[in-house]
Design a protein around this nucleic acid. Structure first.
Lengths: 186, 186
DNA sequence: GGATTAAAATACCATTTGGTACAAAAATGA
DNA sequence: TCATTTTTGTACCAAATGGTATTTTAATCC
């Protein structure tokens, strides 16, 4: 049984619907493997989800981090984030990480821990980005860097979550652009 | 068996945790009634949830509608909404309606229909409010009334949802104030 | 009080959940 | 080719889910 294949199948299932709505049984029959095989490889449902999340972070979230850490200016970076959130086809059914975070009380301990880890890393990345913008004199609002980072993160999460519920991408872009306009309009 | 009591118990349970995480069995033993009694009164889980949502709309959401339809000005109304979302003790564990809306794919048909109904009513209320502000010359942004209404609704939902996950109310107020500043700062 | 009717609870149903004991295959070694 | 080891799948487990048939209890009527 190919571990990589199982991870892909599970990720796709969790991502398309919701980690809480996909059972281990379902994953097994979608991947055409037996349940003991899966448990031998991942130990538990929690282990599987954690592995899937790791894989997701590697394949998808990394691209988002690249945008934030690209070293570009405020407007350009915000624009890229808006593009990503409102138009990237991979976010059409939302973000697996945000789905997990939204239902983190339904996750096992190791997956939840990983979710919190990633969340902290994202927050830190937003902070670093905004701080660099402030240093460059692009981010001159009274708003603190920490608060701005939280705000930015939550607005992105909101936008991407809305894509999962089928909202019109153009509308989402409009809303997100409006929300993030607080960074550029003093 | 007191129907009102059962509704209160169920509402409290759904509200405090999440409608998807509270089973019919749990509701029964919390209300100290037998399962057939509950099914005789509400027909199904969907029926119970729908009844609870109706009761919730009557007891809680009505207050939110009162704020919006109070006929007061833009700044004052937004301030009241910010207060409600970030400080009202009843929103400490979030809003039952928003929880249902967030997990509406997990709801039965009648409850889901009611959720959509309430959602439309809320949107309409936001539209009416913003339109009246525009008529009074308080809302002069390029933003359309419809888009503004959607934005307002989503930002409130976000803020209240964050309260359910234990975020610091002061932080939430700050974020929401920032988000809604787009209405008053041109 | 005794018969009838309305209310409630016990005890069950099928299905699904996460998880595993154990037997059947398949690959490896000599 | 035969024995050993590793891999895989069948068949099961207990618990919980939403929902119900049937029996017991309680109230009503005469």
């Amino acid at each position: 049984m190919n571990t990589e294949t199982v991870l892909d199948v599970a990720m796709s299932a969790y991502w398309q619907s919701d980690p809480a709505d996909v059972s281990v049984n379902t994953v097994c029959q979608m991947a055409s493997i037996s349940k003991p095989s899966l448990y031998r490889e991942f130990g538990s449902e929690d282990g599987l989800k954690r592995a899937v999340l790791d894989s997701y972070a590697d394949k998808v979230l990394s691209d988002m981090f690249l945008i934030i850490q690209g070293g570009r200016g405020l407007e350009e970076t915000l624009g890229a984030l808006i593009d990503f959130a409102s138009a990237d086809p991979r976010m059409e059914t939302g973000c697996l990480f945000y789905k997990m975070r939204a239902g983190k009380h339904r996750l096992g301990p190791t997956t939840r821990a990983r979710v919190e880890e990633i969340n902290s890393a994202a927050q830190a990345a937003y902070v670093a980005f905004l701080q660099s913008c402030r240093d460059k004199g692009e981010f001159t609002t009274a708003l603190s860097v920490g608060a701005g980072a939280t705000y930015l993160g939550e607005q992105l999460a909101l936008a991407i979550t809305q894509r999962a519920s089928g909202e019109d991408p153009a509308r989402i872009r409009q809303m997100l652009t409006l929300a993030l306009s607080v960074f550029t309009r003093a």
